[in-house]
């Protein structure tokens, strides 16, 4: 219930934060919303010597449009994303995923950047961020680099973030016409984490055929992944229930699903299929409405 002692810094600017991160190195952890980190610290499963709180850097907390791109600051909370009119209008997938995270209180404090950097295998965002082909901006005193979502998630709780780097924002294209998306999730009843979470985007061409789909899957493997075989199976097709169902069968192709107390690998695999099918069907329906 009580964390070990640590030194605390609350920089007001990104530059200050970067300097602190550089100075304290591996001993330091960044504190964003704290809803993954603080419980671990209270149980003393994590005991960083230094906490650098990004909560005072207001520049990191914004949702804005840049042309056809949506840009979201890393310190934006789940609740802000869930309720953003801009996102609901122009790219609802991330908002839909945000609404499925934890509970009201957690969504009021938890942040996009914190969740992504923690890279929990059952977190909701990674599926959506993958399906959105988002790009993540990582900044350090050495400079700024952009990493595709695909390359950001490396393994269980492991990301492409290098020492000294801070995830500052993510950006992705707003939905064009004839595009629909959906995030569906099977909750683990105790923790609310995803046993399976599937984020999909379906883009139709002017004839109503499938131009492209994106399917991000979380909860199944040590890291979230793109179900590329499903996507390939749908490309160029006139989508219907049967075709979607067939393609969804490949939702866990090539991955070795995890087992735990709440779901065996077999069940996770099967649910990946069910939820991929359902999410695709819903996204398709929404895409058709936007025709």
């Amino acid at each position: 219930m009580i964390p070990r002692g640590f030194d605390y810094f609350s920089p007001q600017t990104l530059e200050e934060a970067l300097a602190l991160v550089a100075e304290h190195g591996a001993e330091a952890k960044l504190l964003a919303g704290g809803h993954s980190l603080l419980p671990m610290m209270k149980l003393r499963l994590a005991a960083p010597g230094v906490l650098i709180d990004l909560g005072r850097i207001s520049d990191l907390r914004a949702i804005r449009e840049e042309g056809e791109q949506i840009v979201i600051g890393a310190m934006t909370t789940h609740a802000e994303i869930e309720k953003s009119g801009l996102l609901r209008r122009r790219a609802p997938l991330l908002a839909e995923a945000a609404a499925e995270i934890g509970d009201v209180q957690v969504r009021n404090r938890g942040t996009l950047g914190g969740a992504l950097a923690h890279a929990d295998p059952a977190a909701d965002y990674p599926a959506a961020v993958l399906a959105l082909d988002a790009e993540l901006t990582l900044v350090s005193q050495r400079g700024t680099r952009t990493v595709a979502a695909q390359d950001f998630f490396v393994d269980l709780l492991t990301t492409a973030l290098e020492p000294g780097e801070i995830l500052t924002e993510i950006r992705f294209a707003a939905d064009g016409p004839r595009t629909g998306s959906a995030y569906l999730k099977l909750h683990q009843p105790a923790s609310g984490f995803a046993i399976v979470g599937v984020a999909t985007r379906v883009q139709l061409d002017s004839k109503g055929k499938c131009e492209a789909t994106a399917v991000g899957v979380t909860g199944v493997a040590p890291k979230a992944y793109r179900a590329t075989q499903v996507e390939r199976a749908l490309k160029g097709k006139a989508l219907n229930e049967r075709i979607i169902a067939q393609a969804a069968g490949k939702a866990a192709a090539g991955v070795e699903p995890l087992s735990d107390l709440h779901a065996s690998a077999r069940y996770r695999k099967a649910m990946a299929e069910v939820f991929t099918r359902r999410a695709l069907a819903l996204a398709l329906e929404r895409a058709r409405r936007r025709q």
């Binding site: 499963l45 295998p121 269980l156 683990q188 995890l258 087992s259 107390l261």
Partner: peptide, 20 residues
């Protein structure tokens, strides 16, 4: 201890990571 009763859902993934 703590790991057994808290880290349940991460154990297999963690074991895979360490073996890897």
């Amino acid at each position: 201890g703590m790991i057994a009763s808290i880290g349940q859902r991460l154990l297999e993934g963690a074991a895979r990571l360490v073996i890897g």
